[in-house]
Structures are given as structure tokens and as C-alpha cells.
């Protein structure tokens, strides 16, 4: 991937483990911990942890088990084992003053956990918060068993390309409408729910949306390769999320996602963005007057943000 694509794919990055494909626990992705930042030994010695992603601010570990919680806690049934746990760790930064570091770690960990839990309670599909230790900078959450939207789209596109010879362009476009569109509509609708609660994500990219293979009722059924598949989008990584009532902030959120589509899925990005926005408006509106007013305002702002870009013109 070229640098430019990298640059824009995470146009508004936070701690950005986003460019690592989020992978399922069973697949082993070894990321070397940088320098001497490691987990508190009490945790790393007690549990078998796999580092699956490393960003500027946090490290993401996977663990099959949680120290206190029974393995079936998340599924609610005894027959199905849980998909495991994710541990997000903000290591101390040695370059900054201890007091400042402690304050920042505590504040950011808490704020992320609060938002995550609030959204979960509101029924938005985000990982379930399990435990938080703000002083140590630790957040335990459920592991989402599924691939990222980014790699899923890539996989679909590759598969379609391979079949191009015997199917042709039209058939492919049809397939995209058939397979990718429903998922993107659902992604848009999920983002709408998030924004409806006056929460902005701050780092919406196609790697920060996971597709959970799920049996939930509202999940969309997608048929592909004659195998029935159920895809349920889950939004992750709320490290940069914040509460905001401003339409501007939501428009920037959407703009960042749009840039991510353009850089990571350039060929059909226009189509994809259109579908996400279609799902967004639909998810927001639901025929209510105030909601329609809100979403129109956001769309107007989005046009303005597109024109000027995220950055203002620099003075002096």
C-alpha cells in the first residue's frame, strides 16, 4: 500500500491499530511489543495473552479467558464457549511527567469505557465492556468473532474479480448490490444510531467496523457462494470518541469514513459511500420530524466539509 493511501485511510487517526487487520483470535498475528512497554506482570504472568495490535497509544491483547469471569458469561449458554476477551492497555509514556501521564491514562481509559458501556446499554452494536481499571489503563471487553469490514470487502472484491471472466461487468455490479450493499446499509444505520445519541466516533474507518457472524434477529442475511452468511456490523475503537451535539462533528465523522473508503477501496468507493449514507439517512430518519431535521443539517455540513477538507486554511 502506498504511503498516500495509508495517510488517508486513517484520515483522523487515534491510537491507530486500525491498519492491522483485526483478526480472529485463532489466527496468530505476532506483533512485537515496542521497546520496554509491557503489561503489568500481575496480568501477563497469570494469563496467556496474545498481542494482536499495537498503536501509538494502546496495545490490544487477546485472551481466551478472563481472570474472574466464567467462559460462558458472554454467550449465556453452557453449550457455546465465549469468543474470548480483548484487553486494551494504555502503557505509561515515559516521556511525559508522571503526574500528567497518570492523569491522562486515567481520564482516557475511563472516558472510553463510559462511552462503550453507554452505547452498549443503548443497544448499539459495540463490544461489551467487561471491566475497567483506569489507573492501570486497562479495559477488558468482549472479543468480536469476525473480520473487519475492510478485509471482508477486499475478500468479496477479489472473489468477484476471479469470476469476472465468466460473469462480466454487469453481473458483478449486480452481485455488489446483492452482497455488499446490505452490509453497508447496516453499517450506515449503525453509525446513525451512534450519532443520534450525540456520540461521535472520531476515527471511523473500514478497519474499525467488524462484521460479526451472528444469529441476532436484526442481522442481515447475505447469500454468497451458496452459503448462507449472517453479517452484523460492530463498531470498535472508541479511543477518540466524544459526546457532541454539533452537526459539524458528525459530518467530520462521515467525511473521515468517506476518505477511508476512497483510500482503501478506491475502485467502487463512490458506490460504497452512497450506500453507507443511504443507510445512515434511513437509520437516522425513521420518519420522525426532528430526526429528519437533524440528518438534513448533518448532510448539509458534510457537503461543506467535503469542499474545504477537514483542515481550515492556515494563517501565518
Amino acid at each position: 500500500m502506498t504511503l498516500f493511501r495509508k495517510l488517508w485511510s486513517f484520515a483522523y487517526p487515534g491510537f491507530s491499530f486500525s491498519h492491522f487487520h483485526r483478526v480472529m483470535a485463532t489466527r496468530t498475528l505476532s506483533v512485537m511489543p515496542l521497546g520496554n512497554v509491557t503489561l503489568p506482570s500481575a496480568i501477563s504472568e497469570a494469563l496467556a495473552l496474545t498481542l494482536i495490535a499495537q498503536g501509538a497509544e494502546a496495545q490490544i491483547y487477546f485472551s481466551v479467558e478472563h481472570p474472574f469471569i466464567p467462559a460462558t458469561y458472554l454467550t449465556g449458554t453452557n453449550s457455546q464457549p465465549s469468543a474470548g476477551y480483548i484487553l486494551k492497555y494504555r502503557p505509561p509514556k515515559r516521556y511525559r511527567h508522571n503526574a500528567l501521564d497518570a492523569q491522562l491514562t486515567k481520564h482516557r481509559t475511563l472516558s472510553e469505557a463510559r462511552i462503550l458501556y453507554k452505547l452498549f446499554l443503548a443497544g448499539i452494536s459495540v463490544p461489551q465492556l467487561i471491566a475497567v481499571d483506569p489507573r492501570q489503563g486497562l479495559i477488558w471487553m468482549e472479543n468480536i468473532d469476525g473480520q473487519s469490514l475492510k478485509s471482508w470487502i477486499w475478500a468479496q472484491e477479489t472473489e468477484m474479480e476471479e469470476r469476472q471472466v465468466d460473469e462480466g461487468e454487469d453481473a458483478q455490479a449486480q452481485k455488489r448490490v446483492h452482497i455488499i450493499k446490505p452490509v453497508l446499509l447496516a453499517v450506515g444505520s449503525e453509525i446513525a444510531k451512534l450519532h443520534f445519541l450525540e456520540t461521535v466516533h472520531g476515527d471511523l474507518t473500514t478497519s474499525n467496523v467488524l462484521l460479526r457472524d451472528s444469529s441476532r434477529v436484526e442481522a442481515i442475511t447475505v447469500t454468497f457462494s451458496d452459503k448462507p452468511m449472517v453479517k452484523d456490523p460492530v463498531i470498535i475503537d472508541f479511543g477518540l470518541a466524544q459526546q457532541s451535539t454539533l452537526p459539524e462533528d458528525k459530518a467530520v465523522d462521515l467525511y473521515v469514513l468517506e476518505r477511508a473508503f476512497i483510500s482503501t477501496h478506491p475502485i467502487h468507493s463512490e458506490e460504497y459511500v452512497e450506500w453507507v449514507l443511504e443507510g445512515y439517512v434511513a437509520g437516522f430518519g425513521r420518519g420522525k420530524k426532528t430526526a429528519m431535521f437533524k440528518v438534513n443539517e448533518i448532510m448539509r455540513k458534510l457537503d461543506a466539509v467535503r469542499l474545504r477538507g477537514r483542515k481550515r486554511s492556515m494563517v501565518g
Binding site: 504511503l3 495509508k6 495517510l7 486513517f10 487517526p13 487515534g14 491510537f15 491507530s16 491498519h19 498503536g55 501509538a56 497509544e57 509514556k93 516521556y95 511525559r96 511527567h97 500528567l100
Partner: peptide, 20 residues
């Protein structure tokens, strides 16, 4: 100095993580 330099180092680190 401690505060504003920590902010600068933090955004620089983010950029480094991004472009590798």
C-alpha cells in the same frame, strides 16, 4: 513546557505509527 511538549510528542508518535 511539560504539558505542551507532551502534546506535541503525542501527535508526533501517532504520525509515526501511521506512516510506519
Amino acid at each position: 513546557q511539560e504539558t505542551i511538549f507532551a502534546m506535541l510528542v503525542e501527535i508526533t508518535e501517532r504520525a509515526m505509527a501511521h506512516v510506519g
